[in-house]
């Protein structure tokens, strides 16, 4: 199995070498590898400041970029809180009070549970391959390692939070090692570091994601993918309000 995927990477990266300007194909490959069509993830998130840290355990189901359902499994204060997104509509469900709340899609840019990730990151509301235009910029060497660099600019019609994201990808496995997020003023706002690549159901995925806000070097949020299932078979009404409230 290892050989099979090793060969796939080599073939893809060789092809990319022959056609060095095809940044869009590269981005599609990253999306296919890391998102798949459907996925079920078990995630551990740790929010850290110098004097404090907090860990949450989450399950996240995603189908394409239109449907997502996340459930918090711990800690006790948030246990059971669920978020459903169907296209641009979002609902939170608080099982202890049996309260379902429709939330504004502007909440996609809200900090998720005090972390440096947003609702958009957790619910995977945007797709780098579909919502951005891509072009290569010169390779860069960071701490002795050379990266292919792709500049992703939001398409005019795309409803995304970040107008520009720069991907630093490994030329070995073609997967990203850094995403740099820029605001409208082209100011760097945060950096996502990705590491510890593992294979789940034939998909390679960096399992350690560290989000570092640019304005606060002492704070960071780390996501560890404990388990990931690609091409999960969800029930027909899995991404429905009935299922949202069935907890």
């Amino acid at each position: 199995m290892f050989k099979q995927f090793f060969r796939k990477d080599i073939v893809f990266c060789l092809a990319l070498g022959a056609n060095a300007n095809n940044a869009t194909e590269w981005s599609k490959f990253i999306d296919r590898e890391m998102r798949g069509d459907r996925s079920h993830a078990e995630i551990m998130m740790t929010i850290e400041t110098p004097n404090w840290s907090r860990t949450l355990e989450i399950e996240s189901d995603v189908e394409g970029k239109k449907q997502a359902l996340s459930t918090i499994n711990s800690p006790a204060k948030e246990k059971g809180i669920r978020t459903l997104r169907i296209e641009n509509n979002m609902w939170n469900y608080f099982p202890k009070l049996k309260r379902k709340v429709a939330v504004s899609s502007s909440m996609l840019l809200a900090s998720w549970m005090g972390s440096d990730f947003t609702n958009e990151d957790i619910l995977k509301a945007s797709s780098m391959a579909e919502d951005y235009e891509h072009k290569f910029v010169p390779n860069q060497k960071i701490e002795g390692t050379e990266y292919r660099v792709i500049e992703n600019t939001a398409k005019s019609e795309a409803k995304v939070m970040w107008p520009k994201i720069v991907t630093y990808a490994s030329p070995v496995d073609c997967l990203p090692r850094q995403y740099r997020y820029y605001d409208k003023q082209e100011k760097l706002k945060r950096v996502l570091y990705l590491d510890d690549v593992k294979t789940f159901d034939g998909h390679k995925l960096p399992t350690k994601w560290v989000m570092q806000p640019e304005n606060n070097a002492k704070k960071k949020t780390t996501i560890i993918y404990k388990n990931m299932k690609f091409n999960s078979s969800f029930k027909p009404n899995h991404f429905s309000q009935k299922n949202l409230t069935d907890y």
Partner: peptide, 9 residues
């Protein structure tokens, strides 16, 4: 009645 804009509700 609820109406959702991109920015608000």
């Amino acid at each position: 009645v609820r109406y959702s804009f991109t920015e608000a509700m």
